[in-house]
Nucleic acid binder design. Sequence first.
DNA 1: GTGCTATCATGAGACTACCTCAGGTTATCC
DNA 2: GGATAACCTGAGGTAGTCTCATGATAGCAC
Lengths: 199, 199
Amino acid sequence: MQDAAPYIAQRPRRADGIRNYDAILTTARKAFEAAGADASLEDIAAQSGVAIGTLYRHFPTRAALVEAATRDGLASLISHADQAAATLPPLDALRSWMSQAIQHFSTFRGLVGILTRSMYDAGTPSHAACAAMHDSGARLLRSAQATGKIRADLTPDELFDLLSGAAWVRENSHPGSDGGARFLELVLTGATTRPDGPT
Amino acid sequence: MQDAAPYIAQRPRRADGIRNYDAILTTARKAFEAAGADASLEDIAAQSGVAIGTLYRHFPTRAALVEAATRDGLASLISHADQAAATLPPLDALRSWMSQAIQHFSTFRGLVGILTRSMYDAGTPSHAACAAMHDSGARLLRSAQATGKIRADLTPDELFDLLSGAAWVRENSHPGSDGGARFLELVLTGATTRPDGPT
DNA sequence: GTGCTATCATGAGACTACCTCAGGTTATCC
DNA sequence: GGATAACCTGAGGTAGTCTCATGATAGCAC
């Protein structure tokens, strides 16, 4: 759940390297939440007690650091999908997962944009995790569609458009917002079938 | 429609000042569309044939430049609302205006964010125009609600959440997107009333 | 413990962009 | 043809990104 160093199996890693890697990651999470995805990397290095070069050694790009900092959240989102599918009726499972996803996507300012880009760009660090999440969301969608309660013409990509739109609004809208719950409700209403046809 | 210098009435302006103001604005529009709202201001100045100080003289902040560059678009959006209200049934007028709004909000990458901030922050250059647009949208919404075809519990602020979410998705989603039309359709479906109640 | 070596850390510095301001220029008015 | 307010300039301070030559050291073998 916390800071599992990722390339531990590839090569023998030195203890100081692991220590710094973890320290940078912990600082980065706080910095991103405080200042958004474009927080100063120099500040993160300084607050971690390492030089800027050390940060770049472990995380060659900002995207790599963001990916590492949000990896656990994405993973738990995927497992949440499995759990919801196993314990809730399909429509409730979808709703619950979407709510969770919107919350995670807006962990800090700028995350949605990074995740959305990762979803459709295979060259980015988060791409694999995003694709996995895409699949687990698609499964929930298909189940809900199979019950006939969600309109059949809604595609997984469109589901993610709705999700990321909701997350962006949650990040950027007026202060008196309710954290995306209302947006999700409106969007889900649009996605459910109705007696008189989809439109 | 084009480059009307704004503070023309306040003081006698020199011809060279007006010339530079217009040149910067023309360059800025192109630069924003090519590189997004965070295009280099130094490049804009250079391509306009003026020094960086001249750009800052006319547009003290980036927000001021963006506001000036998008002023016409916002104004035409407001007049589109009046025209739609006068010539179309309320629901169609709302739909037409929303489509137009989504298109304008996503003129270039980063615009939605600026407009959304302006909407709720009275200290920003675009605030007045945003508020005016907010009002004209709210009027269309109220008319559509009066026909009973749009759910009565939808507030103007929520309408703008939906709009800006759609615009953000149009800006950032997958390449094979359709320009927000599908998102608008889904969202409008959620906003319309249904025989079996809103949820 | 000694030595070896791949791994790791350092931070100066090149680069880019933002924004300011003191000093110089010029359009405009009378 | 002055006077002057409006305007322009661009060097320079600040801040952030990212690289790389140099040096340090953890971990291993003996």
